[in-house]
Amino acid sequence: MIRVGVVGLGMMGLTHLNVYRSLPNVTIAAICDADADRLSGTVAAAGNVEGQAQASVATLPPEVRRCSDIADVIGADDIDMVDICLPTHLHVRFGKAVLTAGQHLMMEKPLARNAEDAAELAAAAETAKGLSFVGHCLRFWPGWSWLKEAVEDRRYGDVCSATFRRVVDHPKGAFYDNGDLCGGALLDLHVHDTDFVQHLFGMPKSVTSFGYTKLTGETDHVVTRYQYDTVPLVIAEGSWAMTDGFTFNMCYTINFENATVDFDLNREKCLRIFEKGKAPEFPVVESKMGYDYEIEYFLNCIEEGRKPEVVTMQDALNTIRIIDAEAKSVKSGNPVVI
């Protein structure tokens, strides 16, 4: 049985807790937050996707330790794995502390605030006793993991174009209001699609990005073209600059040689396949979210003593390298070679 301590009880901390409570090979040993109201369950964060942040810390059994100091979790004898769901700028400091203590590290995305910090964490993971994993959930998300398989086995031929879109209103709060801390929508939201583009096609040769600042002082709405020799057109748009009340949505459209497939989270039949010479298909997509599958995957890696391969620390570092290039392109108005 793997004993986990969850640090940070915001939207993602509560979402992860809910997953841990559903799995048979893990037990929640401790929860940690400096906010007493969050720690008691008096105040709870809300998610922007149906199914997020469903756990209530108020209903956790009494044997779960409640800590206001992260030092009571990192290095604790009764905790095998630490799940860091803290603000991004704290990842390098506390991620390295977990690795130094010899515990397994589950790190919520993005890996770090910039590529320099991400490289520091990735290097620490290489020599650490414990295993490390970064929660790039789209790699496990039903409908998206299917797309990865479709691209890899070339069931519809080569990819001619790939377009991704992720938009919502601003989540608000001290962290999300401060671009220096959160990195704007470019790093905190759009990073999902940047990572998935890398997952599908590898590292791009260059990026050309356009965007603007509206709320945080950093890029709050971005559109990027990723340059590849093998795919003519790859584009992703990400924004949290929409007017309050605008419902979260994520979608993609992939045009293959012999089919067009698209996914829209807010559509009843969210995955559609239009293959040449065949009637349209509307496969049933599993209702579980990527968080369920990514955590289950990492726990299995720990039990089997093998390094994660679906998401590696190098993958997570490379994603930040691409994001940094996108930020430079937005500011300069020019393509940036990676």
Rank of each mutant, 00 (worst) to 15 (best):
Arg3Tyr: 06
Val4Glu: 08
Gly13Trp: 08
Leu17Ala: 06
Leu17Thr: 00
Tyr20Cys: 13
Asp33Val: 01
Ala36Arg: 15
Gly41Thr: 00
Ala45Gly: 04
Ala58Glu: 12
Ala58Cys: 09
Glu63His: 13
Asp69Trp: 06
Val73Ala: 01
Asp78Arg: 09
Asp78Lys: 09
Ile79Pro: 04
Thr88His: 06
Val98Pro: 02
Gly102Pro: 07
Gln103Met: 01
His104Trp: 05
Met107Gly: 08
Met107Val: 12
Leu111Ile: 15
Ala112Tyr: 07
Ala112Ile: 11
Ala123Ile: 05
Ala124Gln: 10
Glu126Gly: 06
Ala128His: 07
Ala128Phe: 08
Lys129Leu: 07
Ser132Arg: 08
Gly135Val: 06
Cys137Asn: 05
Arg139Trp: 12
Ser145Gln: 13
Glu149Thr: 14
Asp153Phe: 08
Tyr156Gly: 04
Gly157Lys: 00
Asp158Leu: 09
Gly173Val: 12
Tyr176Met: 07
Leu181Ala: 14
Leu187His: 13
Asp188Arg: 14
Val191Cys: 11
His192Met: 03
Thr194Trp: 00
His199Ala: 15
Ser206Gly: 10
Gly211Ala: 05
Tyr212Ile: 10
Val222Pro: 05
Thr224Arg: 00
Asp229Ala: 10
Val231Gly: 09
Pro232Lys: 08
Val234Gly: 08
Ala236Ser: 15
Ala236Arg: 01
Glu237Lys: 01
Met242Ala: 14
Met242Glu: 15
Phe246Cys: 11
Met250Gln: 12
Glu257Leu: 06
Ala259His: 01
Asp262Met: 15
Asp264Ser: 03
Leu265Val: 00
Lys269Ser: 13
Ile273Val: 14
Gly277Arg: 03
Ala279Lys: 13
Val284Phe: 09
Arg306Asn: 09
Val311Ala: 02
Asp315Gly: 09
Asn318His: 10
Ile323Gly: 03
Ala327Val: 01
Gly333Arg: 02
Val337Gly: 00
